[in-house]
Structure formats: C-alpha cells, structure tokens
Nucleic acid binder design. Sequence first.
DNA 1: AGAAGATACCTCGTGTGACGAGGTAGAAAA
DNA 2: TTTTCTACCTCGTCACACGAGGTATCTTCT
Lengths: 111, 111
Amino acid sequence: MSISADILRGHTDAIILAQLMERDSYGYEINKNVSQRTGGAYGFKEATLYTAFKRLEQNGFITSYWGEDGPGARRRYYAITEAGMRQLAADRQEWNETRAVLDALISFKEG
Amino acid sequence: MSISADILRGHTDAIILAQLMERDSYGYEINKNVSQRTGGAYGFKEATLYTAFKRLEQNGFITSYWGEDGPGARRRYYAITEAGMRQLAADRQEWNETRAVLDALISFKEG
DNA sequence: AGAAGATACCTCGTGTGACGAGGTAGAAAA
DNA sequence: TTTTCTACCTCGTCACACGAGGTATCTTCT
C-alpha cells in the first residue's frame, strides 16, 4: 500500500509545485500555463487554485509575496521552498506509481 | 475542459467495472485481484469498495445477485450491464487523457 | 470443545479537496 | 461609460474515501 489515499485527488498541489519549479509565478499565470501545456484540455477553477495556494503555504511548500506595483492588477507571487521541492519529488514518484497501477487495472485490455 | 472534475478521485468505479468486464465477481475477490495485479501496491478499503458497489448499482452500471449457497460465507456477485460497458469505455478514454495531462504537467522535466 | 483467524458481507460518520457562486478592484477596449 | 480582461479572495456545499464498528460462516490450531 505504498500509494497514499489522496493520490486520486491531490494532484493539484503537484502541478502547482512543478510550475513553481521553473520560476516564481502567480495564480493567473500558472493557470494559463496549465491550459497551454495541455492544449486547453485542463485548467483549474479559481476556487481550486486559491485553496491550493493556501494549503501549500500552510504546509510550508511555498512562500508568497506581493509583486511590485506595475501596470495592471496587483499580483501575489509564489515561490517554492526546499520542503516544496522535496514534496514535488515525492509527488512525481507517486504519480509514476499511480500511472502504473491504473494502467494495470483500467487499460490492461482493450474492450 | 474535456476532463471532468471527479477524474482525480473517481477511478474506483472504473477499476471495478474493468474487473467485471472479465467475469462476474464479488467484493472480496475483486479486491484480491486488484492487489495481485498491482503487486500489492494497491487495494481498496472495504468501505470504499462497498460504497462503490452501491453507487454503481444505483447508476445502473452493475447488477447484483446472491451466489448459490456453497461452503464458506455467502457472496454477493456483481455483473456489468450494457450501460456499465459504455461507462467503462468512457472511463478508459478519460484515463488516457488524464495520463497525458498529468505527464505534461508533473513529469515534463526531471527536477 | 473452544479460540483464533480467514472469508465475506454491511453501515455510519467524518474529513477533505474540488468548485459553484459571489465579491473586490484596477486597466484597457468598445 | 459600460464592458471585458486581468487578478485577487471567501464561503458553503457536494461527493468520495475510509476509519471504526458490526454480523455470520467455515477452518485450523491447541
């Protein structure tokens, strides 16, 4: 039972952490990147996104800071922490296991 | 947004349907098969399993009947319906999409 | 004979993540 | 000036997973 319970639901956090691994970013941008990267196939609902930020920050996986005032609406930037990086590594491994498990159980035979 | 919300959580039903695609079966056996097929990496909690049966039957994706009395504890067998087969086909496709999406978002770079 | 363990079923209550709905506010476009 | 886009946030609800607890039969061990 190496796969934890929330694996079927908690990928939101991993996706966000993976984005922040590349560079600091903010909610709106992360969501646009997700949409782009999946060819429009997937995107977070805003409520989902901001709940996730809160959770991630509470868990110490990300930190946040207000972006410098420029033109346009204010932005809250997020940065991944060391703990966040470790979490992401664990999440990636968990995803690999999950994929193997579901392939074995769902796609094991056509039809 | 071709991926529905519950995809991150609702794989239980698809796994059960996939098992029933091979032959009628009952709770305990399905769970053992799942464990076996995944090398012990995954198994349902009983509560999860029986909640899923109830849900699947209510949705018309499976039907159930008591096994003939033999030695050992009584067994309730489940059989997949036509609607269940259609659902399974949809679930399989959804899983393929989910896998692509998560690969793109989580495993896109080794970090 | 009695206890323990495997087989096999079921329900209730709780926790949590996803998200619909609703709200704020500045900038750009119509 | 009204709408649209960027950008943030909260509250309440829903659905699924599952811990805990319970029933009953059959086999195995002592």
